[in-house]
Amino acid sequence: MERQLRSVRRHDTAAADVTPWKIRMRRVSAVSREGLEELSKSRTATLGGIMIVFLFVVALLTPVLATHDPIKPDYRDRLAPISSEHYFGTDKFGRDIYSRVLYGGQRTIAISVAAVAFGLAIGIPFGILSGYFGGRVDAVGMRFVDGLLAFPGLLLYLLIVTLSREWKLEGFWNDAILVFALGFAFMPEVARLARGAALVEARKEYVEASHVIGEHRFSVAMRQILPNCVSPLIVNATVRLGYMILIIAALSFLGLGTPPPTPDWGADLNVARDHMEQHPMIAIFPGLAICFSVLAFNLFGDGLRDILDPRTAER
């Protein structure tokens, strides 16, 4: 979705780039300085922010809040209903769903955040350098990005995740590979976005000025241009965090998600679908957890957009 928005907007140079950079700077700094105040003006951002804070707090407190070992099965106590022992009941292996949802959340959020961060970390320099240097570098770089963007839907994810299965996977590295795959597939959008902003900024006076005073080109690109294209990236990344959670769930459904027994919302929801009729509770809690977090990131992203991007502002 965001990708489409961008790709239309990227040709809509008039609208996207007409805002003077000073105003943009002011807007960005407003967020950093008076961030909370600014955010609280947007009802959606406030609500989303509260939900996200809740998610992060719960994720951090998971070891305290959890009541059971999330991977310890007990077949004598399988498919148990909600009780004071098991707040959300138990799954088909007799594991405590409440604890699994907590640990799964910790993991899901960590992976989404890491994947988005990774996507930004490779996409932003790629895009900015491409836009800044222009010419042949830009042409080659952008054709690469366009080629990646032409993979429709989930196909790029499917290919990369299947590909990465070859590598030795254990514990942390397993998650790292998922992060890599999700982040890499996010990269082209980021690069596009960053490049669009960089193209405009590169022609601005201040960049010229820094040339004149002899700053190194690379550092100019990163130091001067980056802050000016941050706002659309923030919005995009926030909404993307929610989308990542859904992609992880879809990959789990297709058998490419987290290997068991690691708690994972998508995988747990996927496994629970066999019991949907008799024991709907198993599916409901991880399902709601996914909805809640995606909603939180979307709300917050919407709110941020109101503040940062006047074009789609809701005023």
């Binding site: 991977i71 310890k72 099965p73 077949y75 292996f93 299947t162 299965r165 996977l169 254990e170 514990g171 397993n174 058998g255 290997p259 068991p260 027994p261």
Partner: peptide, 23 residues
């Protein structure tokens, strides 16, 4: 599913087990 349980049984019995699913 069997692998998943075997994994936890082996952990229980003192092995350092890991569990992976492949195509």
């Amino acid at each position: 599913n069997t692998a998943e349980l075997v994994h936890s049984m082996l952990l229980d019995a003192g092995f350092k087990a890991t569990n992976e699913v492949f195509d």
